[in-house]
Design a protein around this nucleic acid. Structure first.
Lengths: 162, 162
DNA sequence: ACGTTTCACTTCACCGTTTAAGTCAATCTA
DNA sequence: TAGATTGACTTAAACGGTGAAGTGAAACGT
């Protein structure tokens, strides 16, 4: 900690600056597209999308929090907003009253169906179209390594929990 | 927009899930380290770091906003906080009163000098150490392409403005 | 069985960010 | 050179997120 740190050489610094810029700008761009075209934040979109792919379009709040990459209080508030808009409803889990089930309504499903194509198109435009054929795999492998370092015990993303 | 969208195949979906997870978790991890060890947000750190590398340790607010990847109101508030802590001061640009110059104080410089090594160590631990020798270059090239798509007219990051 | 603990959320208070309006200096424009 | 405009911030109000305390259901311990 107080030892001489190994500084970043100039190539590493370029990489780092580029990555930081991406960490700031890409989420902002995704939020902007979703907000503009669907009135949703990226986080809210992930909630609806996760539910739409779950069996019965239903998930426990705690599972949904993991899938949508948010804290439980944040999720609770976001689902409250989505509930007010009629896209999600909540009921206590009948098999265990401590859990709360979040359920995508039919309107919510329609909302995702209407929203997803535009969002996927934006993801293509910003991420996949600019990459060479080889780069997606490189990015996936780099991401997996970084995520392992960030949270060694975290579930490998893409390991679907159902 | 209403056309059939080209959906993501399963390899692309894996890539996308991994990238989204990285976009959420890596900034959180960086913020956590800086908050814990230095009482700074990542954004505040970028402000101090940008100033420390600028000539005279001085930058116009608008330039600083670009370098630190933040909006002008956000910057204004953040600099206000850093000013209260004695690390930055502001004065109107003597050559043109419309501009405001943000200046890193000596205490602010000491703060960065004390903070940077731990932060760089964390960046190494989370990003560079887990990568193979070839991957930083791959990441830099991917990032450059994505950033170009996000903002075609944006300055290529790493193009230092002084 | 009853009290305690654990657990999954929800709520609250505080704070930071965004969006929009306000300020003020410099520059056009007539 | 007065008035309008542009540009660079700053301020204010509304909103969303975080961390800590609160709630209520199930499990545990005796």
């Amino acid at each position: 900690m107080t030892d001489e740190p190994r500084w970043l050489d100039s190539a590493e610094e370029q990489t780092w600056i580029t990555l930081v810029a991406m960490l700031f700008r890409l989420p902002a761009a995704l939020d902007a597209q979703l907000q503009r075209d669907a009135g949703l934040s990226h986080f809210e979109y992930l909630i609806l999308a996760s539910l739409s792919e779950a069996p019965e379009r239903t998930l426990r709040m705690s599972v949904l929090a993991l899938l949508s990459e948010g804290s439980l209080p944040r999720l609770s508030q976001a689902v409250g907003r989505l509930e007010k808009r009629g896209w999600v409803r909540r009921t206590p889990d009948p098999t265990d009253g401590r859990y709360t089930l979040a359920i995508l309504t039919d309107d919510g499903f329609d909302k995702i169906v209407a929203t997803a194509p535009g969002h996927v198109a934006e993801v293509r435009r910003l991420v996949f179209d600019p990459m060479t054929k080889a780069q997606p795999k490189q990015l996936r492998e780099i991401g997996a390594r970084v995520l392992r370092a960030v949270d060694p015990n975290g579930p490998r993303p893409g390991t679907h929990p159902f």
